[in-house]
Design a binder for these strands. Sequence first.
DNA 1: AAGTGGTCTAGACCACGAC
DNA 2: TCGTGGTCTAGACCACTTT
Lengths: 248, 248
Amino acid sequence: MERINKNSFTPPFYQLATILENKILSGQLKAGESLASENELSREYELSRTTVRKCLSLLAERGLISTHQGKGTFVSRPSLDRAEFLMEEFHTHLTNMGKEPGYRLVHVQFLKELPEFAVRLGMKANQGILYYCRLLMADNEPIAVEHKYMQYIKGRPILENEFQYKAFSEVIMIHTDILPVRSQAILTAEIAGEFDAKLLNAAQGAPVLKLQQALYAGDNKPIGVGIFYYRGDRYSLVSDIHPLRGER
Amino acid sequence: MERINKNSFTPPFYQLATILENKILSGQLKAGESLASENELSREYELSRTTVRKCLSLLAERGLISTHQGKGTFVSRPSLDRAEFLMEEFHTHLTNMGKEPGYRLVHVQFLKELPEFAVRLGMKANQGILYYCRLLMADNEPIAVEHKYMQYIKGRPILENEFQYKAFSEVIMIHTDILPVRSQAILTAEIAGEFDAKLLNAAQGAPVLKLQQALYAGDNKPIGVGIFYYRGDRYSLVSDIHPLRGER
DNA sequence: AAGTGGTCTAGACCACGAC
DNA sequence: TCGTGGTCTAGACCACTTT
């Protein structure tokens, strides 16, 4: 049995995690089987139970095991047929990729009515709706168009500068003093409409990733909704599921 | 100052997390500001430092704070302009949604050459390539088509049944005895090709979510690649980012 | 009653950053 | 040097499941 090296720079909980992960990935521990109990592992590897638990919680986070109070800890399917996509805010995403984000405010308008999809999400027009449309660019190439609809508060100034550069949840907070606390988003594939295709400098019928987003206040009422259309040929999401590194 | 109720069924670390989360969401703690140190929090709320740390790690996981050794703990942007999408394996996804998954094996074939995108991913043909194509359905409606390319091992039987029902990583392991340990996937929007559109029972030019997946062995060599095309109008990904519940 | 995971405590030592 | 977060220990009590 492999042992824990207490002089290594890699902490014991991490060493144990890689040991157990290897047993799972190599098939020594098969899906559905139960692991040794926390107390047993603690004895076997001469670690405190706290340390064993920290290791197990790491493996659980990664989907390799699942724990059940009173029953034990079990190996999960080594499910690689699975993907996790993180869609960052546009500015963050581009700077991470080493590109220059650009913004163009295309349209700002006051509306009395909400578009149909916003009504379906349970949003109300109240005092009116502030609509704006923005073009997102990377190194001056258009990547996405976004359409935003938010509650309008009478008497509040409409600051176009803010629309151009700030994230939607900030714009909402500045205009309404309400900080959104919940966000729901739906991602699908669609064909770009004529208006959006033209802005994106894409051909008629070009495929886009459509992201529909709703922001909710603390009372769970939607206070802003938005739609993004990302050019399919210039924007993609990446998922990488890999084993723990031996060292870190 | 709010205090921890030690008689509540909600554990202290969770109570503290909601207290701190509320301070962040309400704006009492602004982005970039530093939190009280772990020792201070420990004194203030009369909890052990271990418990305080468990609470902080929960908030860090949720992106509300970030910790920096030697410097302190800082409030992050309340970034709601962000989305996390989890794409489960098809069978799991459908049963979660209460639908009946269905599979139809469309094609199985031995190839001598790999398609161009697989070569670009660094895959080699070696003894040959096993290709198959499968139609994925929900309640008998076509949802997605997948094309898989994997290493062929001479002399090994080709079991069509397995292709129809098993996950790709299992099929690979059964045929090659190699268990993939790493998966990389790229998601974009595209227009369905003629062949795929027909299988999906969709119109010419219909938009699809394209998922390109590569599975790697322990030596980081690709041993199988696949492409999924999901009908844009029947498949979508959902993200929900919300505050901690008061009770649990 | 015995065994399992879930939570908590009080104290220790270390690595890192700022002074 | 001091304060910060990162890790570890040994022991305790609880809730849940099985016997």
